[in-house]
Design a protein around this nucleic acid. Structure first.
Lengths: 232, 232
DNA sequence: GCAGTACCGTACCGTACGGTACGGCGCGTC
DNA sequence: GACGCGCCGTACCGTACGGTACGGTACTGC
């Protein structure tokens, strides 16, 4: 019942970590990748048998490593989160152009993430589990997704304000407006199974449009509005 | 196997409708309400037994009326959708004030809906089923939620444009920006189980802020910006 | 009163899936 | 080369749940 992430055949002798996550070993990562793959391809049929078969390991091992099904799913969510944590958006020299590019980069990256098969499958899973008590995958997804991203973007916004480029009181509110302008109804539609084609070009345009709209709302300096707005 | 919505003890003799939905009888509506209640309260444990117990009817009846579990869920989604279809937002006399109020009404109403327990539970269910093939509840929710709402709001936007109050080329794009400004990350956070307190006052303020931001982006006439923006 | 019908309650069946047990194998270590 | 161990593969168990069958009851039309 006590899931452990420490492999017994490695240095660690008998630390017996509680329920918390050590970084998974290479073999364990392969298992978690199998779970992700299965999630994306099969969606619903995420059974322990299927995972064991796909990862070429025994169910007994799964239970030894991850405790139970929820432990496996939790570890999978954490694993996926750990590999998305990349990219920093804080520019050094802060003029309007740098700020704009920084925000565009963030917006495009984030759109790519939420539009990815993996993210959609993972969010579906977490949302499905959010309805019942026990082991909130939803909380983990939120903490590593939405909230983690906020903590990386807000410094950019505040730097922009410090440089006199943006005007706002509430950083959180400004960030949420930005999130709204970037994401709009994309995520919920994808989660509900809408086709919604979203290639790289579309993402780029969406990101640019959202940043221009955000600057129009929160920009202080009269920025040289670049190429073209989406409409008009 | 062939679900039918026509009660046999009513006038209809032997129409045997295919798989499509007649309006459910009062008794059937009670059953569907039981499903909704169960969905909200129990989340996951939406079993046919539980529904039958709660609705004080036999499982056999459930299967006769709705065919199978998916049929029951589909009918429930349709039933809920049918009662949300209310309210029209198209004002007659179109000046800036009327347009603003119309948009505010829409925004507040929509926020109330997506923040309701029922909507959250229903969307969770539909999203959970979107992963697997067969009987896309997701499509139904989208059609009756997001898309239906769009069809009712877009005329307002276009009327605003015709009156010279708004400026945009692509109505759909303008609408999606509006949706983004109103909803921001609220729906996904609620679906993932975030607490996110959202009382009537908060909704009102959110709606007003979103409308002001939308008018700032798309408004043509220099509107007398009312009371106060959220920040600044 | 009697047949037919719509329905409730409950018992029942089959299966899928979470979780466990066990035999066998490869790879250490002594 | 014998032992231990971590792991694979597979067989197995218990239960929960979708779906069906059936007896009992109330109501309707004749």
């Amino acid at each position: 019942m006590q899931p452990s992430f420490a492999r017994q055949d490695e240095t660690v002798p008998e630390t017996v970590p509680e329920t918390v996550a050590e970084p998974p070993s290479a073999r364990q990562q392969a298992v978690l990748d199998a779970v992700l793959g299965l999630m994306v391809e099969e969606g619903d049929q995420l059974t322990m048998d299927a995972v064991a078969r796909r990862a070429s390991c025994s169910k007994e091992t799964l239970y030894k490593w991850f405790g139970d099904r929820d432990g496996l799913l939790t570890a999978t969510v954490r694993w996926q989160a750990s590999r998305v944590h990349a990219g920093r958006y804080a520019p050094n020299a802060l003029d309007v152009t740098a700020l704009r590019e920084s925000l565009q980069d963030f917006a495009a990256t984030w759109l790519e993430v939420i539009a990815s098969d993996t993210s959609v499958a993972l969010n579906r899973l977490a949302i499905g589990h959010a309805g019942s008590r026990k082991s909130n995958l939803g909380g983990i997804v939120l903490a590593n997704g939405r909230f983690a991203i906020g903590e990386r973007v807000k410094p950019v916004l505040e730097a922009g304000r410090a440089a006199g480029l943006l005007a706002f009181d509430d950083t959180e509110a400004a960030f949420r407006t930005f999130i709204g302008l970037v994401g709009r109804d994309i995520q919920i539609r994808l989660l509900l199974g809408d086709a919604l084609p979203l290639d790289a070009g579309e993402i780029r345009r969406d990101a640019d449009r959202a940043v221009e709209q955000f600057l129009a709302l929160y920009g202080r300096a009269r920025t040289p509005t670049p190429p073209s707005r989406e409409e008009d």
